[in-house]
């Protein structure tokens, strides 16, 4: 897997733009997952995930081939998501309706696209509720929880992505878990 990724990156560095499409295919879901879980809105998530790939492309020469590509890419995606959150109005709440238009969550979008049986609807509602609780976490705990439990990354990788010591990552995961426990325990 890593050898394949390195080969594609070499092609991109040599100037083969089309080779970059293969990288996007490989990582689009994971990058989109990070931005969606961080932002809780499909349009913003798509925007940020695309921007992450564009930044990766224009800065590919500064990527160190000896390090894991996904770590570098996820770091770009996480930083862009945090920037986006910071730019939002400070009194903006993630469960506020967005601009009074249609619902923009991932699950409501799927539900609108197809007729769903009752049990699927319940399942989606459940997932949407958990997503809302993750999105309600302070961003610094949110990023640690997403990388740990949704991207299944090691503490060391999370520390590299967030550019902080492993001990700090642990503390953030603990605090994030505590905050979620208080919200989810009554389910």
């Amino acid at each position: 897997m890593d050898a394949v990724v390195k080969k594609i990156i070499m092609e991109v560095k040599k100037g083969d733009q089309q080779a970059f499409a293969e990288l996007v295919e490989l990582y689009k879901d994971k990058v989109y997952q990070i931005s969606y879980r961080m932002l809780g809105n499909v349009h913003e998530a798509q925007d940020v995930a695309q921007e992450a790939f564009l930044r990766a492309y224009t800065n590919i020469d500064s990527y160190d081939m000896n390090r894991k590509f996904s770590t570098w890419l996820f770091r770009i995606a996480t930083n862009l998501s945090i920037d986006r959150i910071r730019k939002k109005k400070p009194d903006f709440h993630l469960d506020d309706p967005v601009g009074g238009t249609e619902d923009l969550t991932y699950y409501s979008q799927i539900a609108a696209d197809e007729e769903l049986p009752e049990d699927k609807v319940v399942q989606y509602e459940m997932q949407e509720w958990i997503q809302n609780e993750i999105a309600a976490l302070p961003p610094k705990y949110r990023s640690a929880i997403i990388l740990k439990y949704l991207e299944d990354l090691s503490l060391k990788e999370i520390a590299e992505i967030l550019n902080m010591p492993v001990a700090t990552v642990k503390t953030r995961i603990h605090r994030g878990r505590e905050a979620l426990r208080k919200r989810l325990r009554n389910s």
């Binding site: 989109y32 995930a49 997932q127 949704l150």
Partner: peptide, 22 residues
């Protein structure tokens, strides 16, 4: 709490994502 968080299914990027980036 951990089990609930892990139970959320993975989201997928929209179908036209790669074409849009390219």
């Amino acid at each position: 709490t951990i089990a609930l968080v892990q139970s959320t299914s993975h989201v997928e990027a929209p179908a036209d994502f790669t074409a849009n980036v390219m």
